[in-house]
Nucleic acid binder design. Structure first.
Lengths: 139, 139
DNA sequence: ACAAAAGTGGGTAAGTGTGGGTAAAAGTGG
DNA sequence: CCACTTTTACCCACACTTACCCACTTTTGT
């Protein structure tokens, strides 16, 4: 189970650290791609394959847009010996990342955020909405 | 699985690079042809044959238009030693390619776009639609 | 307080992207 | 069918980016 919140800064070569506590569960190489809410999502290989299987079974026409978003923006990353990863430019643009980064574990995936965007999101988080969603799920 | 997004520029001889990460999966020679949404689609030989088989089984009347679009505009391409391919003029016209090119991997195929067209498409991509589609797929 | 782990900086070699020369192939007109 | 022009294929070159490795400082855990 992936969890926790970690803060890093891009270094001069535009690399960002990846949380040691999440590395073993993410495996040596994992996949990152665009996600909703202006963040980057990361899946371990196994989880990525599971999603691919789901999409493969569905109609091409229906999933075309989803596939394009997920696959077209995906890249595989392998942390270096110090555990850093390099984010491609288009993903940094998508997430608005310039320097400070927040990486969170969120169950079956990780999310990579620009620090300011995340804090903004956090500030606007509506507990009432969450409560309602939980109620609907009979949580 | 083909994935990733890659940006190149046509050089003076109108060649474009083809992403190293996609080359092995596409094979030495692959097929490109016209596709919907104003882009060029590329299939590895195996996938191309699979699609041909599917079309062969279907009624000629129904698939006539599809076949015409796919086959008439198809060409086989072989990256040179540096991994570049040459796009025929009619496909460049179809996709509106003049200089900057974006190549994406999208599961079972690749797509070749004019950079500006792609970014326009990307900008108009409605995340709400995607979210809904994903929900329907119980994603 | 000490040792281990984590975070950051940076050098070097390999890989990637682009330009261009020359030879082969294809297209065109007589 | 041949000569000429244009296009394409193949090779060499080089700048730039990325991957890999080593080093040092800071933080964490005991």
């Amino acid at each position: 189970m992936l969890f926790g919140r970690y803060e890093y800064a891009l270094d001069g070569k535009s690399r960002t650290n990846f949380p040691p506590k999440l590395r073993s569960e993410m495996g040596e190489t994992f996949y990152i791609t665009k996600w909703l809410d202006g963040c980057i999502i990361g899946y371990a290989e196994k989880e990525w394959n599971r999603i691919s299987e789901i999409l493969k079974e569905k109609s091409m026409v229906k999933t075309r847009e989803i596939q394009r978003m997920l696959y077209a923006n995906a890249t595989d990353v392998t942390p270096d010996k110090q555990g850093r990863i390099l984010l491609p430019q288009y993903l940094k643009n998508h997430a608005g990342i310039t320097k400070d980064v927040i990486i969170i574990g969120a169950g079956n995936h990780v999310e990579i955020w620009d620090k300011a965007s995340y804090e903004e999101k956090e500030k606007n988080m509506d507990f009432a909405d969450i409560e309602q969603a939980m109620e609907e799920l009979e949580f």
